[in-house]
Every structure is written in structure tokens, then in C-alpha cells.
Write a protein that binds this DNA or RNA. Structure first.
Lengths: 191, 191
DNA sequence: CGGATCGTTGATCAACTTCAACGGTCGTGG
DNA sequence: CCACGACCGTTGAAGTTGATCAACGATCCG
């Protein structure tokens, strides 16, 4: 199953199978059940997670007790609170499995050791973060450009299979609107 | 003036003055006047920019002709449309100097050559992008968590000097509210 | 001085939220 | 295998935030 991670890395840089066998020892493989929470707000966020299969959700809880989703991570995506991970500080976020999932987790200490030992991987992570940051620039544009209705249709248009995969209230919490309003929008478009 | 860039790099990785002299040859130094536009929507976005002094703004223009600001870059910040730069595609954004500015610009081709020749710099860029991405996670949280009024006060609370530095309508365009509403908020808090 | 640029004010209006209640479905325990 | 409760989506009414529009004032700069 870790083969998937090897294939992902080799999409961006060249590494040998032998090196990968050493690289993988820096990670923990974890089997998560739906609803397992792996990071809690106010705690340290010492790990970065790579999803082999399943789906993770990063969210926070606001004053009114509502969950707001910052991002999802499916197969081949990384997930962590980047600043908390980088600064070794506490996080405001929860990270939860919303499907049964297999993930690879690396601690900040191990990541440092890993990058010292395999500096090639700096390039891999540079590209990962560059793409991630670029994606949020586009997301920001959409947030500013679109009405809530357009945000919703834009999303299900671009990611129809993922929209199927998660419950509607989670999608609403990610897109920044209420489940009730999603209902209304869907209803409107049906007629 | 490029010394500032040298100092920025050495905050994150160790390099020698001699290497830096070679590194800097991959960049163009540009002197920009206020209102100079260096990237236009629908064009290629082949450059990544580092601000030595002054301030850049990245924005797009929506259907109604209104400018919405994606981000600002002041001293020691990088700015580009990451995905367009990385994929060598066209951008939806404009990049404009909003003060007289000095910047270092590197083309995508030169960046590739630079990183091949000085792989050490992969680490530098990895950290830059990691921090940038982390910052947008927090920004996303604030966007979802706060009312427009809270977004405004949170910003001028965190970056009072920068809020002074730019006109109010640009700040409004960055925070995602109308200049009129900023007026209203400020007025309310005054009484 | 004159025009462009930026901030302000107030009225009107639409988008979206909130709240409360209901109905369907799925999974679990008896 | 059925019944019950939890969970999720839906509906509608009422309320609010914040946008839009138009007009006016102030300031800056050539």
C-alpha cells in the first residue's frame, strides 16, 4: 500500500526503490476508522499526514459550536496545520477521518531528519507546497468572485465524484454556506 | 539593495556570499513606479517576484468590473500566480506596483536552472511555500469564522502599520468588503 | 484653479442565515 | 427481524448582514 506513496513521489522527482525503503521508515502507517480524530485543537500539531486511501477533514469549531471545514485530503494529498507544524506550536484545528482511511504520518522531528538525509526530497515538498499554495490562490479568487450559489455549482461541477463521496453538510461546511441554503439552491435548480 | 535578498535567504538556509553573487545573476532587478503593471490577466505568468522594497498587489477583475485583491507583497515577500507559474499557463490575475518598488524577478526557466545548479535553494523555497500555504490556512479560517466587521478589525489589529500604508479601498478589496461598508464600520466604532 | 481620486452618508434591496419543525433512512440492539 | 433513535436533508418564515446606488465632500496634485 505504501507503493502508492512511492509512485506519488516519483511523479515529481526521481528516487530509487532502495532509497524509498529507507524513506518509508521515517513514517508511521496508521489505519483509521471513520470519525477517528488524530489532531485536536489546542494541542500540538507535530505530524504531517499523507493519505494512502480514504479521506481526512481539517476543521475548527467556532463560537457558536459550528464546524467549519478548512480542507479535505483524499488519496495522494498531504494534510496538516502548516504553520503549527512548522513552528511546532499549537493548532486551532481538528483533523478527523471521515472515511476509513490508511495514512502515512511523519513527525516534525522525523521530517527534519528525513530531509537532512535525503535532500532530494526538498524538491518534492517544495513542489507539493507550491501547488497547494497555488490552489488556495484560486480558491480565494472563487470565494471573492462567486456568490454562494455559484461557489456550490462551481464545486460540484469541478469535483462531481467527490461531491458524491461526502455528505452534503460537510460540503456545505467546506464551501462556507449552511446546509439549509444548499437545500434551497438544489431545489431551485431542480424546478 | 540585493543584500536584503541575501539576508532573507540566510534566515532559512546557509549560503556563502560567493554563491549569492552567482545566484543573483539569475534574476532581473526592476525598478517599478506606482501603478506599473507587470503581469496582466490572460497572459502568461512566467515570473516570480521578490520585493526588495515597496509593495505589489495581485488582483483580478470580476464580471462587474470591480477589482478584488488576492494578496499584497511587501519587503521580503514573494509574489506570483503559483499555478500559472508552475504550469507555465496563463493567469487570471494582474500584478501591479502600488508604491514605487524595487523587485527581483526570476523567470520559470531561470528558476529551474537556478535550482539545478544550487539544489540547496530547494529547501529555501520549500520553507517559503510552506509558510505561505500555512498563512492562507489561517486566512481561510478567519474568512469563515469572522463577520466582515471582525475581518476588518482583526486585520487592522494585526497589521496596523500596513493598514496605514495602503488606501482604504485597497484594503477593502483585499478583505472582501466594500469601501462603503468599511466607512460604516469605522464610523460605528468612532461613536 | 480644476479635475481626478478617495472617503462618507443614507436609502433601498438582495443574499444568505437562523430557527423550528418535519420526514426519510440507516444502523444497532433487543 | 423489527423498532427505535440518531443522523441527515428539507421546508418555510423571519431576520440580518452587507451590497448596491447615487450623491456629496474632502484632499491632493498638476
Amino acid at each position: 500500500m505504501t507503493k502508492r506513496f512511492f509512485e506519488h513521489i516519483t511523479k515529481f522527482i526521481e528516487i530509487e526503490e532502495g532509497d524509498f525503503q529507507k524513506i518509508i521508515t521515517f513514517f508511521d502507517i496508521k489505519q483509521l476508522n471513520k470519525k477517528d480524530i488524530i489532531t485536536e485543537a489546542t494541542n500540538k500539531c507535530n505530524f504531517n499526514h499523507f493519505v494512502l486511501n480514504g479521506c481526512l477533514q481539517m476543521y475548527f469549531i467556532n463560537d457558536k459550536g459550528a464546524e467549519r471545514t478548512i480542507q479535505f485530503a483524499i488519496e495522494d494529498w498531504w494534510m496538516t496545520d502548516c504553520l503549527a507544524f512548522h513552528n511546532e506550536g499549537t493548532t486551532d484545528f481538528y483533523i478527523q477521518a471521515i472515511e476509513n482511511s490508511q495514512i502515512l504520518s511523519i513527525s516534525i522531528d522525523n521530517q527534519k531528519k528525513l530531509l537532512d538525509q535525503f535532500p532530494k526530497l526538498e524538491k518534492y515538498f517544495r513542489i507539493i507546497y507550491q501547488i497547494s499554495f497555488g490552489a488556495t490562490q484560486i480558491r480565494m479568487k472563487n470565494l471573492y468572485d462567486f456568490s454562494k450559489e455559484e461557489i456550490y455549482f462551481d464545486f460540484i461541477d469541478k469535483y462531481p465524484e467527490f461531491a458524491q463521496r461526502i455528505p452534503q453538510y460537510l460540503l456545505a461546511s467546506y464551501l462556507g454556506l449552511t446546509p439549509e441554503y444548499v437545500s434551497e439552491i438544489r431545489n431551485k435548480s431542480r424546478s
